[in-house]
Structure formats: structure tokens, C-alpha cells
Amino acid sequence: MSGLEAALRVDRGVFGLDATLTVPPGHVVALMGRNGAGKSTAVAAVAGLVPLDAGRVLVDDVVLEDTEARVSVPPEHRPVGVVQQQAALFPHLSVLDNVAFGLRTGGARRGAARDVADRLLTAAGLAGLRDRRPSGLSGGQAARVALVRTLAREPRLVLLDEPLAAVDAELRPELREAIRAQLTAFSGSALLVTHDVRDAEALADDVVVLDAGRVVQRGPLAALRAAPAAPIVASLLA
């Protein structure tokens, strides 16, 4: 069991992404950087949504992509869950059916998938939302449902792309706590993209700082704060 091990190179015009990322099993790593630093590209590349120009992606020792060996597992077959910036709940499905969606693609029957989804929503304290449409949810509720939906498939790695970005500032502490509880109960690894150091403080074991597609510094938050390798690190962690 080795969590995520990724060497990512994506060529994009002026500057691309050229970074190695590791998440030890069961850990949460915060991927931080300014807008355009390559955070979302890294998430898309690990998920298989953007092809690598060079590199490898391994999750729990399983090769998902290896450009040299010409291996590329399609995104729908990777044990990788993604929570997008705006929760992206399916607007035509109830909260319950949203959570059941990933279970059904895994082969579960409708009734069985709904039973499991119901149980997961109840465990997350969201049972009251089960019959609502996504349009009737607050930003925070949608983010929590999206995380339940992603974890329902029991991925080995979950990628959270700015899950708090669409939520009002005063509601973030509560949502952070809810996400923390969810991730604590989750046995896989997690990569959390954020530009808010409070997210990293509350949720992450380690921090990786990305700038212009390169890793500037990585390590525990306290260590980076004590000795920032570049001004960008100090300003992000301020």
C-alpha cells in the first residue's frame, strides 16, 4: 500500500506542469498554489482526464498511467474519486440518486445502490436531504453531498479540487469540520487542492506548494512556515 505516487508532465504552451506528487496511504496532502499554478491540471492528470505527455501515476502500487510502457487506464476505471470545484451534482437526479450513481456504475442494482446511498447520507448527517434536488441545496450542502457521492464508490484516492471555493466564508469552518470527519472515516488517500491555508491547517497532514507548474516546496505545514523556500510559499501560508 503506497497511496499516490505520480510524476506528471503535461506540456501546455508557455509553461506546463512538471511535478512529482506523493500522498502516503491514508494521508491527506494539500496541494497549494496561486491561480494558474497547475493545481487543477495536476488533478485532471491524476484522474486521467488529461493525458500525460510524460510520467507515471500509481495508486496503491497499481499503475494507472505510464507513458513509457504506454499504459493508460481510462478515467472511469481508475480507483480515483474527484470532487470538483462546484459540486457538479447531477441536476436531474435527487440527492439520493446522485450518491447512488457511482454505485450503479459499479454494477449495483438500483434498489441496493439506493439502500447503500441512504445509509451513507445518514452516516454523514445528510439524511434530511435525500429527496431534494441539487438546486434546492446550499453550497455547503452540495459540497458535502458531492464528497459522499465520490466516497460511495470507495476509491483508493480522492482528489478534492477547491471544495470550499463555492461556499460563503462564514460557513467554511463548519464545512471544513464536516469534510474532516468524512476524510477521517475514509481509508484511502486524499489530495486537497486549495489556495486557503486554513483548509490545509484543518485537513492536511502535509503541504505541497506548486508554482508555474513546478513543486516549490513540500513537507509539514509547520516546517514550511518555519523555513519557506520561496516568497510564494510564505505568502500562501500567511
Partner: peptide
């Protein structure tokens, strides 16, 4: 149709056909 719904379906394990029919 917003692309992020297709992306969500994909990362939830839906192949092209399921994605089309269900989303």
C-alpha cells in the same frame, strides 16, 4: 450541457454510453 457533469459521471465510473444515457 455543462462539461463538468460529464466529468463527474466519468470519475464516478461511467463509460461513454452510461454517461450519455444517464447524464
Amino acid at each position: 450541457v455543462d462539461r463538468r457533469f460529464a466529468i463527474a459521471a466519468t470519475t464516478l465510473g461511467a463509460g461513454p454510453w452510461t454517461r450519455f444515457v444517464r447524464v
